[in-house]
Amino acid sequence: MNHLGDAHLHTWTLRLMALLAADPQDQLAWLGERELDTKDVVEEVELLCRVSEGLAERGVFEPGELRDLRAIGRRLGEIDATCRVGFWDNALVTDSAWGDVRSLARQFLLTSLGDWRQPLPRPVRPQSGHH
């Protein structure tokens, strides 16, 4: 990892995977009162999965990690537009795709860190004036 941006993206990927791998009740507790759009979560993870290709070329991710990230990206790509509407807390409990993503994220963390149980990222404070 010779690029500062690479290190940041690697860290962000690990944090996001920790959130995706967490048990549903922990994910809901992390969300708290935040209203996070499902579409935004899907797009963020898909972007990181696409960026991981270049990161792997630079040695940031190992082949096994890249394989796991590709699987997550494919599964998210299968979530149709109607299931991307609404808040993520609702999607977590109503759409089985998130159970699949949880399993794939756990596999990524097992491959990468040896344990899927990782601390959840610090929640980002809601932006003022944002609804």
Rank of each mutant, 00 (worst) to 15 (best):
V45P: 07
V101C: 08
P24V: 15
R75M: 10
N2L: 12
M17L: 14
T38L: 00
A105D: 05
I79P: 01
G129A: 07
Q127P: 04
S52M: 01
M1E: 12
D89W: 07
G114L: 04
L20G: 06
E78L: 09
V41M: 07
P121F: 05
D26A: 15
S96R: 10
N2R: 11
D80K: 08
D23T: 02
F61W: 15
C83L: 15
D68C: 15
T11H: 13
A97P: 02
E78M: 07
E46Q: 13
G5P: 05
G86L: 06
L109Y: 03
G129Y: 07
L66C: 07
L19C: 06
G114R: 01
A21E: 02
Q107P: 00
S96D: 13
D68N: 11
N2A: 13
L69W: 04
G86I: 00
C49F: 08
W12P: 00
D80N: 14
G64S: 15
E78T: 05
T94E: 09
T38R: 00
A91E: 01
D26C: 05
V85W: 03
P119V: 05
T111D: 15
L55Y: 07
L69N: 01
G114K: 03
H3T: 09
W12K: 14
R84G: 03
E33R: 11
N90I: 11
G129C: 10
E65F: 06
H3W: 13
G5T: 10
W12N: 12
W98F: 05
V101L: 04
L20Q: 09
L28D: 03
A18D: 03
I79V: 15
C49S: 15
L19N: 03
P121S: 02
R70L: 15
R34K: 12
C83P: 00
W88Q: 05
D80A: 08
D6W: 06
R15V: 04
R50H: 14
R67M: 10
T111K: 05
R125F: 15
T13N: 10
F61L: 08
C49W: 06
N2S: 14
L31E: 08
R102Y: 06
P63Q: 04
E57T: 08
E33G: 05
L92H: 01
E53P: 03
H8C: 09
L16F: 08
L28G: 02
E78G: 01
L120V: 09
H3V: 11
H10V: 06
H8A: 13
P119K: 02
V41N: 01
R70V: 14
P63G: 02
G86H: 00
E53H: 10
D80C: 06
P121I: 04
L109T: 05
T82M: 12
N90V: 13
K39N: 12
A18C: 11
E35A: 11
H130E: 14
L66E: 07
E57Q: 13
R58E: 10
Q25H: 09
M17D: 03
V93Y: 02
G59Y: 04
L113G: 00
L9D: 11
H131F: 08
P119I: 01
